[in-house]
């Protein structure tokens, strides 16, 4: 599917946001897009942050050649994108008090999820972890949704000082949704007193389950992160 890039906005020194216009199927929070990058062979899997009927927004951290090339695209550029892919989060699995824990560029899919949870009449608490104030992003967007947002930074330059898991102590919750670095999600899983869903990333080729390029072992056998995931129940993950 060919989308048109309508906005390319910098959110922090390393994070940027792309708004793509084009018709697409219904999106579930936690699903992702496979973005074709001019000059590179493999598509790049990027989580869907926000969406409406005729557009999607991807929030991306610049980590390598592919994401660097995406950052340099000018509005008006056509982009070949497959979406929506993957299973996504299941907002109905949570009770009234879901806890969302995101680290860095794991936060974008939680924004779309947060909106869905609010629409279902639930009261999410969002914990955002960054290394420092200078690379924080999306916190205003979470606040503007009208949910309880708490922030931690490793250096204490914004919010509480320390790991995002430190913020879990004072929280009352009945379900966890998490996305971020694997080590962070393991700490969240270990600390969480409630069941939850965790979103993973892996190097992918196809993104729709055909190639087995992103398979990982789980407690219920090999699973494709792209098609069986990227969201897995915490109890299924071999941490």
């Amino acid at each position: 599917m060919i989308f048109t890039l309508t906005e390319n906005v910098s959110l922090s020194p390393t994070v940027f946001s792309l708004r793509l216009e084009g018709p697409h199927g219904a999106v579930r929070p936690g699903q992702f897009a496979q973005v074709s990058v001019p000059g590179l062979y493999l598509r790049r899997p990027i989580s869907l942050c926000r969406w409406d009927e005729k557009s999607v927004t991807l929030v991306i951290r610049e980590v390598g050649k592919g994401t660097k090339a995406l950052r340099s695209l000018a509005p008006g550029s056509p982009l070949d994108v497959l979406l929506p892919l993957g299973n996504g989060f299941d907002p109905s699995a949570a009770g009234q008090k879901p806890l969302l824990v995101g680290g860095g560029v794991g936060l974008p899919p939680l924004l779309g999820l947060c909106g869905e949870l609010l629409a279902l009449g639930k009261s999410p608490t969002v914990l955002c972890g960054f290394s420092s104030k200078s690379d924080s992003f999306l916190t205003e967007e979470f606040l503007s949704l009208g949910c309880d947002v708490r922030v931690s930074t490793l250096d204490g330059s914004l919010g509480a000082k320390g790991l995002v898991t430190g913020l879990m102590d004072g929280c009352d919750y009945d379900f966890v949704f998490s996305c971020g670095p694997r080590t962070m999600m393991k700490a969240v899983f270990d600390k969480a007193a409630r069941p939850g869903q965790y979103s993973f990333e892996e190097r992918m080729a196809c993104g729709f389950g055909a190639c087995m390029g992103c398979s990982v072992p789980t407690r219920s056998g090999m699973k494709r992160v792209c098609a069986d995931g990227p969201v897995f129940p915490g109890g299924e993950v071999i941490w």
């Binding site: 062979y41 493999l42 050649k65 892996e202 190097r203 398979s215 072992p217």
Partner: peptide, 11 residues
């Protein structure tokens, strides 16, 4: 089960 991840790379 196949090999450990990562299993694919850009070229």
């Amino acid at each position: 089960d196949g090999n450990a991840a990562p299993r694919v790379a850009e070229c």
